[in-house]
Simulated assay, not measured.
Amino acid sequence: MFQFVKRFASVFATGLLLAGVPAWSPAATPTYTVGSTATGVPFTFLDVKTNSIQGLLVDAITATGKAAGFDVDVQQTTFSSLIPSLTTKKIDIISAAMLKTPARQQVVDFSDTVYSYGEGLIVRADDTGKYPSMDALKGEVVGAQVGTAFVDALNKKGIFKEVRTYDSVADIMRDVALGRIKAGFGDHPIIAYQLQHNPNPQLRLVAEYQPEVKGQLCFVVRKGDTATLDQLNAGIKKIKTDGTLMQIIKKWQVE
């Protein structure tokens, strides 16, 4: 009897194929297009050797996908284009150094927290001033990366001579070193990592500075995309519980 059933199933499947109807197969693993920036070392950056985006947040979204049952296709996207690319469905998820803010929450949805930090402050190495807060730079020309929460915070202060915006932290560092701006604000882990691995004798990270824009790094999805958001949160929970996320954080030296 078993041989008959097995033979019947084989014949039935063959008949379906001949009739142009595909035989049953397991559902394919979904692949989400992920937008990441090329200038956010160590969170996201372009690895010139492989011509691919690498970093802590690339590892984190890949591990989250594996835990939640989906694959990822990471695409290089400029920071200012991340949310527009998401809302126009060019990408499905943002995995970049984009802090969760009330203003952004009106436009997109954020996952559970992946990593938390605040801003860092850089000045010229020969600048011996004390800068414990933003207020200490009143009346000066300062800079921050376009599209970041730091720009909003600096403009809201209303105490600076000028707040200039830049495409990347590297551009901010250049203008601080050249004396074009008094100081630059950016993601503290990114600045610290870059100065640690590529020392610049013309710059210093201000040790006494206390960040005013403390926030959470999360994955970002389109407003109302609860299906993807639920998958992400389930995956994040798993990689936090089994220690995978902490291993990734240690790998990129941003503890």
Results as ranks from 00 to 15, higher is better:
R7Q: 09
G139K: 15
M246W: 13
D71N: 15
D242G: 06
Y115C: 08
R7L: 10
I236C: 01
L18M: 14
T77H: 03
V213R: 11
V11M: 04
A38G: 00
Q3N: 15
A183L: 10
M173R: 06
D126E: 09
Y32H: 05
C218R: 00
R124S: 00
V41A: 12
N200M: 05
A19K: 14
P42W: 07
Y32L: 11
I239H: 00
I122W: 04
I61G: 01
V221Q: 03
F70E: 08
F2Y: 13
Y131F: 14
V41R: 10
V34H: 01
K90C: 04
L203T: 13
A38H: 01
I236Y: 00
L16V: 08
G35S: 03
L203N: 14
A207T: 15
K250L: 08
T128F: 03
E208G: 08
F8G: 09
A28C: 06
I94D: 05
T39W: 00
M98K: 08
S116G: 12
Q76D: 02
M1V: 14
A60F: 00
P42N: 03
P42D: 02
L203I: 14
I190L: 08
I190Q: 07
E140I: 05
A68V: 03
I191D: 01
T128D: 09
E255P: 02
T148G: 09
G120Y: 13
A19T: 14
Q145I: 15
K130S: 07
A170R: 02
D112G: 10
V141T: 15
V146G: 03
T244H: 07
V176F: 07
V11W: 06
A9M: 08
P22Y: 09
F70G: 04
L232T: 09
A125H: 02
G215D: 05
D112A: 12
D109K: 09
P201Y: 06
P102F: 01
I236Q: 01
Q231G: 01
F43P: 02
V163P: 10
L121P: 11
V34Q: 06
Q202D: 13
K237S: 08
L17W: 01
P189G: 10
G120P: 11
Q54V: 08
A68Y: 05
V21P: 09
A60Y: 00
T44S: 15
E255F: 05
F4C: 03
A170Y: 04
L99E: 04
P211R: 12
V72Q: 01
S116W: 06
T78M: 11
M246H: 14
R124W: 00
G158W: 11
T62A: 10
Q210K: 14
D47A: 09
Q253Y: 04
G129T: 06
G65C: 12
R124G: 00
M1C: 15
F70N: 06
